[in-house]
Every structure is written in C-alpha cells, then in structure tokens.
C-alpha cells in the first residue's frame, strides 16, 4: 500500500558518496512507505557508527543511543509502548562486536522489533579497523599484517540464539532489501536483517563489485521454516570460501512475542496503564501485615 507520508527529514546524510548506507536508507524508506505506518508511531533506534546517523535522515521519532546498546534501548521502548513500530539500525562493530551479547538475548526474547545491521566488515567511523566480520587476512589499520581471527557468522549466531526472522540483504540492491525489511516489520517478533554493505573509504577488499560478484538471491522454493536448511544456508558463504553469498530470507518462525506472554504487557501498552490509586496501594501494603 503506497501512501503520501514523507518519512524523510531532509537532513543531509553524513555518509561518503557511494556508501552502502544510502542503499539501506532507500530500502528502509521504501519499506516504511509501502507499509504506510503512521509516522509518529515509528521509532528508529541507532547505536554509534556511520550507520547510526540513520534516525537523523528520517522524520519519525528516534533515539541515537550508545555504541552497542541500541538493542536494549529499543527493547525498553518497545516493552513500554507496544503500539510503536521499533526499528533498530546499527553496524557490524556495534551489533556483532561490542553489543553482541544483547543480540543473543534479543533473539531469545522475541521482542517485536526489526534490527537492521549494516555489515561492511570494517570500523569506518574510527577510520578503518578490523570488525568482527572482517575476513581472515583482511589488512586494516588494526591488523596491518592481516586479520588472524575467524569472522563471526551473524546469520548463524542469530539462528542459534533463536531469532524468529533471519534475513540477509545487500545494500547494492535496495529494492530486494526493502522487501526483507518490510517483511521483517510485519513479522511479529524479533527480526534481524544483516545487510552486506560496502565502505568506500576504508574497506578496499569487500567493495561493491566484490559483493555484486558473489551475492545471489536464495532460490525460489527454499523453505524458510526449516531450521536445518537455514543453518546450511548460513554456512554457505564460509564453505564456498566467500564465492557464493546467499541473500534473502533464511529463516522465519511464528512464535509468541515477549509482550504477548507477559501478564502485564498482555493487558496493552504499558504506557497506557493507569497509576495505582491510594486504595490499591493500601491493599498492596496489606501483604506486609
């Protein structure tokens, strides 16, 4: 459903020309436009990094939080007001490095939010150090002789942790990405979308062309409800020595969200629930007599 809401703020983006972040901006804007969600009900939460300027190019509500902490901030906001559409946008350093602990628990918890990770395999804002997804041998400012740490497999981590919607997109294909984001927002539960992205300034290895030659869309007929297949798919990039990188929906499972199961949140958004009356407090205090 197309609509005439303008979700963008008109703020000039801070990203370098050619940065993958523009593709994510376009993909998210397109997804919101297709869904037509009321602007005031959208809350975009970011961490710190180039990716985290994302709330500022939108005209919705936003929180630009701390490095690695967008998940708990977004979680708190969603638990407080279930009427909001909460979208987290961060980078690979933010979400797979300093904040990876939160990712595991967000996946288990199944809070109904969408988490977009712009994964460019480098720390860009700090001018080019190795990130958790930098490939073995990647030469960066912090690994001048090449990285000797095995890269993290974020899709695999999300699957193992119990995320109920796991997808990977490519910043160079914003139309495809918009579809994944849209489905992620519609999915009731924790949706993570790892977005392969290029850093034109600090990552000379994983360039836009490098990705273009390697990514392919997960074939028609793939069953995203089959966890074993999803795990196979998640391992494909590593196993093919990065010659074949699948993008698309890896896994999706309908299961109750956190708010649907909590006895307080089941009653409706916390923010709308009444304060206790004096009589209710007195009755509560009777537990102590």
């Amino acid at each position: 459903m197309a609509n005439n809401i303008n979700y963008t703020s008109g703020a000039k983006p801070v990203w370098c020309p050619g940065c993958g972040d523009y593709g994510v901006f376009a993909g998210l804007n397109s997804a919101l436009t297709q869904l037509g969600i009321d602007k005031e009900k959208v809350l975009i939460v970011s961490g710190i990094g180039c990716s985290s300027a994302m709330p500022h190019v939108f005209s919705t509500y936003g929180i630009h939080s701390l490095h690695g902490r967008l998940i708990p901030v977004a979680t708190g906001a969603k638990l407080a007001n279930d009427d909001l559409t909460v979208i987290g946008v961060g980078g690979d350093g933010d979400g797979y490095g300093i904040g990876v602990g939160h990712l595991i628990h967000a996946a288990r918890r199944n809070v109904d939010m969408t988490y977009i990770v712009i994964d460019n395999q480098i720390y860009g804002l700090t001018t080019g150090q190795a990130s958790p997804t930098s490939l073995l041998g990647a030469k960066t400012k912090s690994t001048p002789l090449g990285s000797i740490e095995t890269p993290e497999n974020p899709v695999g981590v999300a699957l193992a942790a119990g995320a109920s919607y796991v997808a990977r997109g490519f910043a160079g294909d914003p139309v495809h990405l918009a579809g994944l984001i849209k489905e992620g927002i519609l999915h009731k539960g924790f949706a993570i979308i790892d977005v392969l992205s290029n850093c034109v300034t600090f990552n000379n290895l994983n360039t836009g062309d490098w990705y273009k030659q390697r990514v392919y869309k997960i074939e028609e007929g793939y069953d995203p409800t089959d966890m074993s297949k999803a795990v196979e798919k998640a391992l494909e990039a590593e196993r093919s020595n990065w010659s074949k990188i699948p993008i698309g929906l890896f896994y999706k499972k309908e299961r109750p969200t956190y708010s649907e199961q909590d006895i307080t949140l089941k009653k409706g958004p916390l923010v709308n629930q009444p304060d206790p009356t004096k009589q209710q407090v007195l009755e509560a205090l009777d537990d102590l007599r």
Partner: peptide
C-alpha cells in the same frame, strides 16, 4: 499489580532498557 519487570542479560542492558522505556513515556 500492573508493574512490569524485565530481567536483563547484564546491567548495561538493564539501564539502557530503562532509558528506552523512559523515552517511550513510562
């Protein structure tokens, strides 16, 4: 009684959730 409790994975998460909830209006 109409309160909500969330056990967090660590104290970093606990306070950041609290900030998120505060910005959201509770």
């Amino acid at each position: 009684k109409g309160v909500f409790f969330k056990q967090a994975e660590d104290e970093i998460s606990a306070i950041n959730m609290t900030i998120g909830a505060s910005v959201a209006g509770v």
